[in-house]
Design a protein around this nucleic acid. Structure first.
Lengths: 225, 225
DNA sequence: AATAGAAAGTGTAAATGCAACACTTTTCAT
DNA sequence: ATGAAAAGTGTTGCATTTACACTTTCTATT
């Protein structure tokens, strides 16, 4: 076994997680940001974060922190990067691991979000954030965009059932460019894991649009990344 | 400013870096692994790692750890992922950030590697490693393979000047599949940042092969990822 | 001096995937 | 009855990728 000194001669650090929480509304991506009514950096904007506790994995800490703010515990989340420069937190040294989360904006707990003084902010209206959170957002956005091109993670931003128009608008928001409707629908049609539910949504058009659903089993079977 | 208690009520953790060091020889990728002659886990195989010290960034710690083993301080390195499950290190709780490094196998310091009881091990001969190092290797390999498909990071595994045959063999090793010579050379010819030096290598064939070099300036100009 | 061996180097044609492009259908509110 | 608004639907050209085999050059050997 290792002698205690093997570990104890080395320093320890606070560990935190910071979460880039993406939502989708009005055809645009938004982030859930805190206007901090607490120290440190009271009054400034930041990501939702929190310290890692004893016996808690990084992934669990990120899930807990996001659930504290949104009330949602079943979100799609991915680790992005760990930021460890000395001085990145001017108070004490903290290593922070960034995670991104994808939220169906119809589902989050409005009361919790309000209690934290958090707000959905559209991507192109994001204010300057504290510490290195601006960079975290850039890194998370790039990573999420990349993932969205190789697997349908974006679907986690939509309700369980969605129309192809919603899906296309979402991908236009994620990629930041318009997509041809016919080419888009051709591509979706070739993905057997995006399947018609048979139900029709009539809230957005007179004609009504077919509702689709993501079939995780078919996807996991056909696809490995 | 933040009250001290904001930080001090939270636990601190040891922070480490573990390095997946790739090399290329005999047409195959290898990793530089330690056969540990020290505790913990003496006698077993592991990645080269080390603790993060006060005032040292994660990137700096990773560079230091790789330099301790190879003597090389100018390597291409990238952060892969941070592993923070409680119990991942059976001794004490340690958060470990994995980095991969690419080494020109002609350049490393043989004495240092020998002193650490380290060995180059071909990818398909890798023994079971301690803790979660097996998973780190899998994650690093996937990440490095992906990066190699979008930018020419593989070139960091070759000497300053290299032949097209060497480059092709390297990419075959990275991607794990054979590549057609004519198609490969057509693609390389379209990359103006891989340029002929005018020099000829005669060590590998009677006829001699043109030596090429990576032009970082041309690449950075033409290409953004 | 001839030659055999070994790696370097070179072009074309078919197939596939991707991008561009505009009109019809359906339904409901007026 | 009709106008408005969104849903839905195929084809063609272009570019990229893949498949495929022989010639050149040099030197070590005989």
């Amino acid at each position: 076994m290792a002698p205690k000194a093997y570990y104890s001669i080395h320093p320890k650090f606070h560990a935190a997680v910071d979460c880039i929480i993406f939502g989708f509304e009005e055809g645009e991506l938004s982030l859930l940001l805190l206007q901090r009514d607490f120290e440190p950096a009271k009054g400034q904007w930041s990501l939702m974060g929190g310290f890692v506790e004893e016996g808690e994995s990084l992934d669990d800490a990120a899930r807990r922190v996001v659930a504290e703010l949104t009330g949602l515990s079943d979100l799609y989340m991915r680790q992005v990067h760990t930021y460890g420069d000395p001085g990145r937190d001017p108070g004490e040294r903290v290593l922070s691991t960034a995670y991104y989360a994808l939220v169906d904006i119809k589902r989050y707990d409005h009361a919790l979000v309000k209690a934290h003084n958090a707000h959905w902010v559209k991507l192109n209206e994001i204010p300057h954030l504290i510490f290195d959170h601006d960079r975290m957002v850039q890194d998370a956005l790039r990573f999420m965009r990349y993932q969205a091109t190789v697997k349908p993670v974006g679907i986690n931003l939509l309700p369980e059932e969605f129309t192809l128009t919603q899906l296309q608008t979402l991908y236009e928001a994620i990629l930041g460019e318009p997509i041809d409707k016919r080419n888009f629908r051709k591509r979706i049609a070739s993905m057997d894991y995006i399947e018609k539910t048979g139900r029709i949504d009539k809230t957005l058009s007179r004609k009504g649009a077919a509702l689709y659903r993501f079939n995780r089993e078919k996807f996991d079977g056909n696809f490995k990344i």
